[in-house]
Design a binder for these strands. Structure first.
Lengths: 151, 151
DNA sequence: GCAGCCAATTGGAATGATTCCGGATAGCAA
DNA sequence: TTGCTATCCGGAATCATTCCAATTGGCTGC
């Protein structure tokens, strides 16, 4: 099962790789992100985490998210001027931002496309990160709709 | 000469096209952006504009920038969590963000590449805007360097 | 040319996401 | 245990940006 939640062990190892500790708070924050991968904001993560760990503070949630981003377990997603969102999908992907609903969709990027992208950079410019965001409307085909149409 | 500053006339016409007026403040803000196309922040635009128009307020600069973005004369550029920057380059292009210097470089995007990008979207998703940002280091080849190397 | 009207401008206050700070805790090491 | 450092915490501070209410400016029709 790809992209499944890391075991405690693997989680701790990943953090240790950056000289960081695994803590209950960090683990809960990570699990919350993995459970509902809808690109929540820090505030949203906070309310979800509090259900499992009522004592946790917002500052800690920010710290944990920052820490997880540092060691590469999650990705920060900045769209427009909106609050930062968090994404545990580590595969190379772009984001589609639905202007109507605000929903964010991960869009897989083939390696071939990434290669073509790097080529547009002038000589001497080397990118360690490429961020791609689409903005527009989603008009899913009928076959993909789950909602019942009014008769 | 492509991309040259618009004449008052053309400037006013472009604004009028969105039902907006040309005002001295808007014109100065626009001219400042055209004169030094280094992706300044609103605050930077403010200090530059004040040299020509000491009375202008920061609120007005924000308003003007917003207005110019609305009618398509400039583009807002959001990188990471930094303050919004403004760019009068209307051709389709990406941005390269130098991690060391903070400098931002416009990178032209061939239409063919944009076509390939749109293809990665699932059926029913239509993007009106595609934003691409590279982050990394610039290591210009010697032949392109202007600074004198120490002997 | 003048009254009326709406857009634009302005300074200052408010907002809101995020960071900072100083002290309390907790887990590991000796 | 004692100490040491990383982590956590609540609250204050930051800072880009937006909001607001009041003024100004520029047309439109008379």
């Amino acid at each position: 099962m790809p992209n499944s939640t890391l075991e405690h062990e693997a989680f701790a190892r990943k953090l240790a790789g950056s000289g960081l500790r695994s803590t209950p708070q960090r683990e809960v924050v990570y699990n919350v992100l993995m459970q509902k991968r809808d690109h929540p904001t820090a505030e949203e993560v906070f309310t979800r985490v509090r259900e499992r760990r009522p004592g946790i503070s917002l500052a800690t949630v920010y710290n944990c998210l920052e820490t997880l981003a540092q060691c590469g377990l999650v990705r920060q997603v900045n769209l427009e001027r909106e609050p930062t969102r968090y994404c545990p999908n580590l595969l190379p992907h772009a984001h589609f931002h639905d202007e109507e609903t605000g929903a964010i969709l991960d869009v897989d990027l083939p390696a071939s496309l990434l290669d073509k992208l790097k080529v547009v950079l002038p000589r001497g410019y080397e990118a360690s990160v490429i961020e791609i965001a689409f903005r527009g409307r989603a008009r899913p085909p009928l076959s993909a709709r789950r909602t019942v149409q009014s008769a």
